[in-house]
């Protein structure tokens, strides 16, 4: 018996040690989410969906924002499928938030989709995605993520491609590097617009999501200042949003009367988009500078 157990343990030690070591290979190239769940609790956050994940660069905010803000800011925005406002995102934010601070800054990106639900599912889809699957949001390596949310084997970390067009920075910003040749931008834009035309049919305003957005903002307000932001997007998608939800801006202003709402939706032509929806990274830099300037004006 002793020999058997020793042998099994020896094999297990080799296997488990290898597995544990593999966890240290996880980084910003692993996938668009992993790194966000490996950092400590944060004092100030950027929240929202992929528009915020790609369009708001914490590094620029951290260098331009006034020192009265508890910096650094951390980009904790994901995608429309993963982080529309709801219980799942609320719990993930709650877990990421450093509850000891009271002068944080929380940039909450909003758009009609982030407070809408899909009619083709009878449950909130994000519950089955990364944020809904894990229980630990702040540990490195995050084995919880690898076991329950990472769609591949941990061994794939050995073969990850560093030439991928996606990279998550240590401040949470998701950098996207795609060709900006006109023909390719047009192709991506057409695809994205088609996708949003379909989305218009299946998404509808959700009272429940608005409730969770309110709850999220109440939580954040206990720990600092909340600023609501509407990030600009391309003409066609804005048109879809306006027709789908013409009263969106009024609803946000009505619902969050005391909060600052920076609405940039009309600055469409000022920026360049990779696919008619997301800001190109250089435009993201310009937009973030504009955002920092406007925030400074208000918090002076």
């Amino acid at each position: 018996m002793k020999k058997f157990i020793l042998k099994v343990v020896a094999y297990l030690v080799v296997i488990i040690t290898t597995y544990l070591l593999l966890g240290f290979l996880g980084d910003g190239y692993t996938d668009p989410f992993y790194l966000r769940f490996t950092t400590k609790k944060q004092n100030s956050l950027v929240l929202g969906t992929s528009r915020a994940a790609q369009g708001i660069q914490p590094e620029i905010l951290n260098s331009l924002l006034l020192d009265s803000v508890d910096k650094p800011l951390y980009n904790y925005a994901f995608t429309l499928l993963h982080s529309p406002y709801g219980e799942t995102y609320y719990n993930a934010i709650d877990a990421k938030l450093n509850k000891k601070i009271s002068n944080g800054l929380f940039i909450v990106s909003v758009d009609p989709w982030s407070i809408s639900s899909r009619s083709d599912f009878d449950y909130e889809i994000e519950t089955n995605k990364e944020l809904g699957k894990i229980s630990f949001y702040n540990c490195y390596p995050n084995y919880d993520y690898f076991m329950y949310a990472y769609p591949k084997s941990m061994f794939s970390l050995l073969f990850k491609k560093k030439d991928t067009n996606m990279f998550v920075h240590n401040d949470g910003w998701l950098e996207i590097n795609v060709s900006m040749k006109a023909a390719e931008v047009i192709k991506r834009t057409m695809f994205k617009e088609k996708q949003y035309i379909t989305n218009k049919e299946i998404y509808g305003f959700s009272e429940k999501r608005l409730f969770w957005l309110k709850k999220t903002i109440s939580l954040l307000k206990k720990h600092g200042r909340v600023i609501l932001v509407r990030i600009p997007t391309g003409h066609k998608i804005l048109k879809i949003e306006n027709s789908m939800f013409p009263d969106f801006d009024n609803l946000i202003e009505r619902s969050f009367n005391g909060e600052l709402y920076l609405n940039y939706k009309n600055l469409v032509d000022k920026y360049v988009y990779t696919d008619g929806n997301h800001l190109f990274k250089e435009s993201g830099t310009e937009f973030t500078k504009q955002l920092a300037k406007d925030i400074n004006n208000h918090i002076k």
Partner: peptide
Amino acid sequence: FLILYYASVE
């Protein structure tokens, strides 16, 4: 290791 490589928990 081959089993673990293929054993995607999801």
